[in-house]
């Protein structure tokens, strides 16, 4: 297994290099200029030119490409073109909040999504099935920012249960959780939808398998059938979906981060894109892609935990 992990990590490096190269090219092809973005609407062309020079944007492309790459090899993610802050420290500051939010969203999605999906599968084409499906589809269909705002208006402004904005300090767990509740719910509702859908169809598959029929014929109770036999077999594809969705959540939680004024990776990425902060965008995406690699690896490893028969080569 150790060999498997090492091989997977080694294979990840060319992927990350390709990610970096693509971002490097993409953002430079796109119109817009970090110097204009940094100086704002009032700047003269002279000042813009001077700043471009200072930002190192007038050096040949391959020099810019190489310099950043060399930094990565040394473990240096560079400094933002706009704010000149170290990107490494910036990511270190927001990553715990991003992971916390993602984890909470996935947790809510799993806790509610799997039972919901099982209920739907067992009661296929009956009322419980329709209700569970309409609920989960509603979850998918509401744009994330809209859902966030509705949650704020209901639970923060009207009921005053939770705060509107910001992320609580980790040193104060109660405050931290109070701040986490609404954004996690906003992400969680979307997650529930995905997980419930997947669980339902996976369970339908498994429930048809011969050994389940045998188990039923042997007279095991319905609950016993579900728990004993189906869950383990259905869990692997569910874990796969959870893996991909977790990776997507990190990037797409940007809407939630904006609405709830939380620090986070998604917000930094979109901000870097809109500001044309070349250096920050490259590093953020590379870090994000590394996270995706790690999550995918963890997902694959989780199969072995779910089903010990699976071997890694």
């Amino acid at each position: 297994m150790a060999r498997y992990v090492i091989r997977r990590i080694l294979v990840a490096f060319p992927t990350l290099l390709a990610v970096y190269t693509l971002v490097f090219l993409f953002i430079r092809v796109a119109p817009g200029d970090p110097a204009v973005a940094a100086l704002g609407d009032y700047a003269s062309a002279e000042a813009v030119q001077a700043l471009r020079e200072r930002m190192g944007l007038n050096t040949p492309l391959w020099v810019q490409y190489g310099a950043t790459l060399l930094g990565y090899v040394r473990g240096d993610l560079g400094r933002s073109l706009i704010t000149n802050i170290s990107i490494g420290s910036q990511i270190a500051a927001v990553l715990p909040h991003t992971l916390e939010l993602t984890f909470a969203g996935v947790l809510i999605g799993t806790i509610f999504g799997i039972p919901l999906g099982i209920i739907a599968a067992v009661h296929r084409n009956r009322l419980a099935d329709y209700l569970s499906r309409v609920f989960s589809l509603a979850g998918i269909s509401i744009p994330a920012f809209y859902l966030g705002i509705l949650l704020i208006l209901a639970f923060a402004v009207k009921l005053r249960w939770f705060p509107v904005m910001g992320a609580g300090d980790f040193s104060n767990p109660v405050e931290n959780l109070r701040h986490l509740a609404l954004p996690a719910l906003a992400l969680g509702i979307i997650m529930i939808a995905f997980v419930a859908r997947m669980t339902r169809s996976c369970f339908l598959n498994v429930l048809r398998e011969d050994y389940i029929r045998t188990a039923r014929a042997k007279g095991l109770s319905e609950r016993g059938v579900i728990l004993l036999h189906s869950l383990r077999n259905a869990l692997i594809p569910i874990a796969a979906v959870l893996g991909t969705q977790t990776a997507l959540l990190i990037g797409d939680s940007v809407m939630t981060e904006i609405v709830f004024s939380r620090p986070g990776m998604g917000k930094l990425i979109v901000q870097a894109m809109l500001q044309r902060d070349y250096i920050a965008l490259q590093s953020l995406i590379v870090v994000y892609a590394s996270l995706v690699v790690v999550i995918n690896l963890l997902t694959d490893l989780s199969y072995g935990v779910i089903d010990p028969r699976i071997r890694y080569e």
């Binding site: 992927t15 390709a18 990610v19 693509l22 990776a247 997507l248 990190i250 990037g251 797409d252 940007v254 998604g266 990425i269 979109v270 894109m273 995406i285 994000y288 892609a289 995706v292 690699v293």
Partner: peptide, 12 residues
Amino acid sequence: LVDVLMSFPALL
């Protein structure tokens, strides 16, 4: 290439 593209956030 597909792997690479899939490690980008969709919105971005």
